[in-house]
Amino acid sequence: MGSIFAFFAVIALVLIAFVGVSAGNMQYLFGVVIPYAAMIIFITGFIFRVLKWGSSPVPFCIPTTCGQQKSLPWIKQNKIDNPSTTIGVVVRMALEVLLFRSLFRNLKTQLSEGQRIVYGEAKWLWLAGLAFHWSFLIILVRHLRFFIQKVPVPIQMIEGLDSFLQIGAPLLYITDVVILSAVTYLFLRRVFMPQVRYISLPADYFPLFLILGIAATGVLMRYFFKVNVTGVKELAMGLVSFINPDAKLLEGIGVIFYIHLFLISIFFAYFPFSKLMHMGGVFMSPTRNMVNNSRMKRHINPWNYPVKVHTYDEYEDDFREKMKGAGIPVERE
């Protein structure tokens, strides 16, 4: 059972941070050393992974298209679904990255009455995926208030919109509710749909539980077990300006903050080695980012071995005199 393994892996991570900070007093390790290490692993790992992908050639022109290709002038082309220009590709990619357009087309296939195959709509995955990713992005942007001394107006506006329901104090963030419910749905989907459960691996469950853990500790910290939040910002500002925090500051922040930070550190350190790399990968998929111009331009396989050819012209140059002597017609005199 992949899910149980992944669940206990995340529980173990929580316990490591909890014991390390509350019993071992290792605030410096969990608050400074591990976050820096995770950041370095994340950035270098991400870059190496992308460069590795970039070094594989694309042998064929293989965009997956869902519309009419550019053809004769009286046949209407679908310029976004079957782009023949870079602009078309950019629009298509933007819709894919921002709105998950291909997932919107997700279908479910079923046998009706055991005989007939029937295709139905399956939009919940798209909806939950979109809700989850957008919440995650907004939460990430919102956290910039811990890293910038004078928080810029756009970030304040995002935070204002996120909390505009004005429920409770501190104000409830809409994204907190959305991310927890969406990730829960994405997990339950893997458990309750037999086909999806069959193909789910620990590497699928682990990021889900990790993100659930990050969101849950964040929610607990904001609404329930309060931490010294100005201290958190002092530490964060210190980290991004390479100022060593003093022990008093580190000890003044609650344990739950270190659990939150440790889970995030693990998330970023794990990122380059996992399925989470789809963040970079979505831009690198040839089936999405290629122009479908195979009728206009020849796509040359970069893998092609440089074959040595001897053309007829060269052949004639070699044997022209002999050919003439034998009475064989030549193209050039």
């Binding site: 950035i43 890293f147 910038i148 001394q149 002092e234 300006s241 390479f242 970079g280």
Partner: peptide, 19 residues
């Protein structure tokens, strides 16, 4: 990507953080 991930460092480095 690199600048998106690291821009808080570039914003803050060498500045005094008033608490």
């Amino acid at each position: 990507f690199f600048f998106l991930v690291t821009f808080p460092f570039f914003l803050n480095i060498g500045k005094v953080n008033a608490k």
